[in-house]
Amino acid sequence: MSLWREALLVAGKDLRIEARSRVTLYQILPFGAVVVLLFAFALDPSRGVLPRVAPGLFWVAVLLAALLAVSRSFTVETENAARDALRLSGLDGSAVFLGKAGAIVAELVVLEVVLGAGVAFLYDVELRSLGLLLATAVAATAGIAATGTLYGVLAAGLRVRETLVPVLLLPVVAPVMLGATRAWEAGLRTTPSEGWPWVALLALFAVLYTTIGMLAFGPLLEEA
C-alpha cells in the first residue's frame, strides 16, 4: 500500500472515531466558541478594541482548541492498548503521521469556519481579502497540526501527557500565532500585500514541521 493510501486509512479511522464520538462537535467547538465569547465580554466593545484585536484572539482560540484536538488524537490510541496495535499494524510511521495530522487539519478547518463566523459577528469584523485569509488559515492550520502531531506522539506514552503537550507545543507554535495574526491583520485592513510574506513564513514552518514529523514520527511511536 502506498504512503498516501496508508495516510488516508489512518485519517479516515481518526475522523470516523471523531464523527461517532462527537468530541469535536460537543467539546472542542464549544470550547473555542466560549474562548471567543469570553474575550468579547472581557474587552470593551464600545471603544472599538475588538475589531483591532480580532485576528490575535481568533488564532489564540484556534490554538487552544487545537491542543484539545491533539490530545484527543492520542488519547484514542491509549485506550485498549490501541497504540501497540498501531505499531504492530505494519503501517509506515510517516503515513501514520500524515494521517493523524490530516485528521487534525480537518477538525480545525471546521472549527475555524465556525469561529471565523463567530468573530465576524461578535467582534464586528468584515472579512475582506478572503484569498489572503484562506491562504493564511491553510498554512497556519497545517503548521499547527504538524507540530501538534509531532509533540503529541512525543508525550504519548507519558502519564503527564495532558499537561505536557501544551507546555511543549505552545512555545513551538508561537511563530504560527505571530505570522497568522499579522497576516490576518493585513487582510482585515485591506492591505493584503503586507500579509503575504507572513503566509510564506507560515508555509515554510508547515513544510519544515511536516518533514520533521514524517522522519521522526515512526521512531518516536516506537519509544512511546
Binding site: 479511522k13 484514542v76 485498549n80 492498548a81
Partner: peptide, 12 residues
C-alpha cells in the same frame, strides 16, 4: 499478537 487488551477502538 493477541494480548491482554484488544487493541481496538471503542468508537469503531
Amino acid at each position: 499478537l493477541l494480548g491482554h487488551e484488544t487493541g481496538c477502538y471503542d468508537d469503531l
